[in-house]
Amino acid sequence: MDERKALIEVKNLKKHFKVGKNAILKAVDGLNFIIREGETLGMVGESGCGKSTAGRTIIRLYDATEGEVLFDGKNIQNFDKKQAKEYTKDAQMIFQDPYASLDPRMTVGDIIGEGLDIHGLAKGKERQEKIYDVLETVGLNKEHASRFPHEFSGGQRQRIGIARSLVINPRFIVCDEPISALDVSIQAQVVNLLIKLQRDFNLTYLFIAHDLSMVKHISDRVAVMYLGAIVELASSGDLYLEPMHPYTKALLSSIPIPDPKLEREKIRIRLEGDVPSPINPKPGCKFQDRCAYAKDICREVTPELKEVAKEHFVACHLMD
């Protein structure tokens, strides 16, 4: 078992948005997990299931509706002004859209230098050196510092976004679908860069993606999300070899297996219907309408995330 200490502890985290007079959108509805120091936790789920909201609440971009997030044992919601600013140095985010996440009016140098300016980490020549260094670390070069974001390709922009987070030496980075907007040929490069940086700087990642195939390579453990809740959480290997939740099985069966024989024999589970709306959800299991095994209890009681095998958590009544 992994003995590293937990850097992030998320306990019953909820984030609800008021979207109308009596409508509450439960984007994140009771998350429980930990991320150990130096580890990558993958988080997958269909678009709109609350992954970004979860990531943003964890780095304090949003205030949690309920529950708590502990960073290094300290509750981030109770931070005072100074601690909150300190936390922005420790916890960073890489965004999904490399075109929208860089200020079009700033040079790359200033975009990367902003964190240094805000935290007063370096000035003048030293600042410049740091920017050049980090540009080289992410595979760009110092000539790029004086250019504007629109002059770069998607992959290069994502590298700039990574450099911006990296330059202030964070300990934890939320990678919010950092490769979904990139060409397939570039995706691997960016993932490999992230893996290399993690090793070199002992970073801890929450790596968000919308399909399982993307997170497999980078994650130590993977959490599968459905409508604001985690339905299954296990080590990367266990999850792929022995998925237990009906939703995870369905997700995995949609990924083609490179072996044609296995691929033909594979049992396909198709997902029926659409993802239900997260606004005023009905009681019981969130997956009930699309689940082939749904029983009466599923419509009444929300299944809790339980450890059904060693380090393998599932939220489903079938496991009882």
């Binding site: 943003r56 971009l61 960073q92 985010m93 999904q96 859209d97 996440s101 902003e114 911006r164």
Partner: peptide
Amino acid sequence: EYVLAATTLGASKTRLLLRH
């Protein structure tokens, strides 16, 4: 997202307004 990114870096409201 670039404004969110600056917020994540700890930018104050004044800085967000004036710089971004």
